[in-house]
Amino acid sequence: MYEKDGVFYADEKHDPVKFPKVTGLKPLDNYKLWVRFSTGETKECDFAALLREPAFRPLQNKSIFDSVYIDYGVPVWNNGEIDIAPEWLYENGKAVSGGN
């Protein structure tokens, strides 16, 4: 638990470099996302394996996958019903240069 500006938070304080937010994204072919993080880094994240998981199965519909948007630094789909942690994208994405 930590306190910031008089507000108490139950989780641990996160280092913004260790836990960056998503600041830009673009759906790509083959169920991949191009992602820009608050650190300025850009990565390509492959969702192929995740689409087998029950929570992500709706994303097998390419139009739903392509409807991704950012909500408070987190990629979301279906009006927020599906999301993915920026930490997972950061740790599992492959570094790419520039703005695809």
Rank of each mutant, 00 (worst) to 15 (best):
K62I: 07
P27S: 02
G99I: 07
F37I: 05
S63T: 12
L59P: 00
L50T: 07
E87D: 09
A95E: 12
Y31W: 07
A48P: 10
A48E: 13
K21F: 07
K4G: 02
K21L: 12
Y90R: 00
N100M: 12
W34L: 01
R57M: 11
P58D: 04
S67W: 09
E44I: 14
K18R: 14
E3N: 07
L89M: 10
Y69P: 09
I70A: 03
K43F: 03
P54H: 08
D66E: 15
Y2P: 04
Y2G: 06
G6H: 01
P58G: 06
K26W: 09
V68M: 04
T39A: 01
E81D: 09
V22A: 00
V68E: 00
N78C: 13
L33E: 06
N92L: 11
V76Q: 03
N92C: 14
L50V: 07
Y31T: 05
A85I: 08
V22H: 04
E87Y: 14
N79W: 10
G80S: 02
I64T: 15
I84A: 01
R52T: 15
R57G: 06
P54C: 03
W88V: 14
E3V: 13
K94A: 10
P58M: 00
L25A: 00
D83E: 03
C45L: 11
K4R: 14
K4F: 15
D5G: 09
I64R: 12
G93Y: 02
E53M: 15
K13S: 02
K26N: 08
A55G: 13
D15F: 04
K94H: 11
N79P: 01
N79Q: 00
Q60P: 07
P75T: 00
L89H: 08
G80M: 09
Y72A: 08
I70F: 06
P16E: 05
S63E: 15
V22T: 05
A95N: 11
Q60L: 13
W88H: 13
V22M: 01
G98H: 04
R57P: 02
S67V: 10
N30S: 02
V74Y: 11
E87W: 01
N61A: 11
E81Y: 14
I70L: 01
N92T: 05
A48L: 10
Q60W: 04
S97A: 05
F65Q: 08
P20E: 01
L89D: 04
W88P: 11
K13V: 15
E81A: 02
F19S: 09
E91R: 14
Y9N: 06
A85Q: 11
F47G: 01
R52P: 11
I84M: 04
D46V: 12
F56K: 03
F19C: 08
F65G: 03
G93S: 10
F8A: 14
E81S: 12
G6W: 09
Y90V: 03
I64F: 14
I82P: 07
Y69R: 12
G80Q: 04
N92M: 04
G73Q: 05
D46R: 03
Y2H: 13
K62P: 02
E53D: 15
L59S: 07
S97G: 11
W88Y: 13
T39G: 06
R52K: 15
